[in-house]
Design a protein around this nucleic acid. Structure first.
Lengths: 180, 180
DNA sequence: TCGGCTTAGGTGACATGTCACGTAACTTCC
DNA sequence: GGAAGTTACGTGACATGTCACCTAAGCCGA
């Protein structure tokens, strides 16, 4: 099964150095535990899941609390069908609404309702407190800038290499609020 | 709605500094996208989900590929019932087996099968390559040590503050293999 | 050795996520 | 202006995760 002599070496060499492996393991461990804790805290304190929070948060971060469904999906790195189902459930709970897009007849906008914003606002302090306590409280402040830069570099890399479309920066621009 | 004068100040102060917020946002963005990409890559290239991979990986990292179910759950930060269901499915696929624990009559061990180990081995290079490409390729090597230390500090903090039991270090100790 | 307490895991009903596919609105090019 | 290709979302079937609760084994003091 190896009649292809050396057209391109198989490269069984480990693609990660020792230190990279350790870093990756630490990342995964943090991710797993933090996910668990965030979910739990949000659920018990606010009746929101982390998924709900991601959606509400992304919407709230947008002028008018309104975003096209596909754009929102790209922003939070969800499958579009997942978002579609989830919006259905959140609509039933009164947290968001759907309304046909003005720009594109095919598209739908997800819109934050007043109730949705209220729930988000109610949930945010507890969530932020958890982040402060779980993530930053044990972190040497001297490492913060490096951590930030590193994460931003990784983010950029994932965007560049990833299969998912780069999120549209339908973002709030400082001092530029197009209004409703 | 503010008839409770100042029994305890409401503390609307933001618990996070500007730089902490940015760091947190970067972390969340990385987490969302990387999760998406890892899932996708594993699924299409190996027919394993990221969840499968987490389980197999944890087991393989243990002498004999055998671990008590609850210990495994703590290790990968899953609800125990989730793991129970998942093991059932993985058992049906022949990736793992269950066998009653020798030490504790109540407990069950999850055991990696030969097929499970083979699948894991087959999936690992692709997964590692993805990590190398998405996570490390864009990272300034000078930042690596700081990133690692920061993540390890955060991990320690989550363990200390979290609600989940600290994972038992039923880990492979260098030079100390109790054997099967 | 009996009864209550705790801890192990499992289970069934239901919430959530994924995949494959469907329909409709654009876009293009003739 | 209309067929072909693309893009936007929705949907139904099924895979996965969560919650509340169950049974059994170990534990412990009366």
């Amino acid at each position: 099964m190896s009649p292809k002599p050396k057209s391109r070496r198989v490269l069984p060499e480990p693609p990660l150095t020792e230190e990279q492996q350790e870093t990756w393991l630490a990342y995964m461990r943090v991710k797993l535990r933090l996910n668990y804790e965030m979910n739990r805290q949000l659920q018990t304190d606010s009746g929101l899941s982390l998924a709900d929070y991601d959606v509400l948060n992304a919407l709230a971060d947008c002028p008018g609390g309104r975003m096209q469904v596909g754009v929102l999906a790209a922003r939070i790195a969800w499958e579009r069908s997942r978002l579609s189902h989830h919006l259905q459930r959140m609509t039933a709970r009164g947290l968001v609404e759907r309304s046909p897009s003005e720009q594109d007849g095919r598209a739908t906008d997800a819109v934050l309702t007043a109730a949705g914003r209220a729930e988000l606002d109610a949930a945010t302090p507890g969530h932020a407190a958890l982040v402060a306590r779980m993530f930053f409280a044990g972190l040497d402040p001297a490492l913060l800038p490096a951590l930030r830069t590193a994460l931003e570099q990784v983010h950029e890399q994932v965007l560049a290499e990833g299969t998912l479309p780069r999120p549209v920066s339908q973002h709030r621009l400082p001092g530029l609020y197009p209004g409703s």
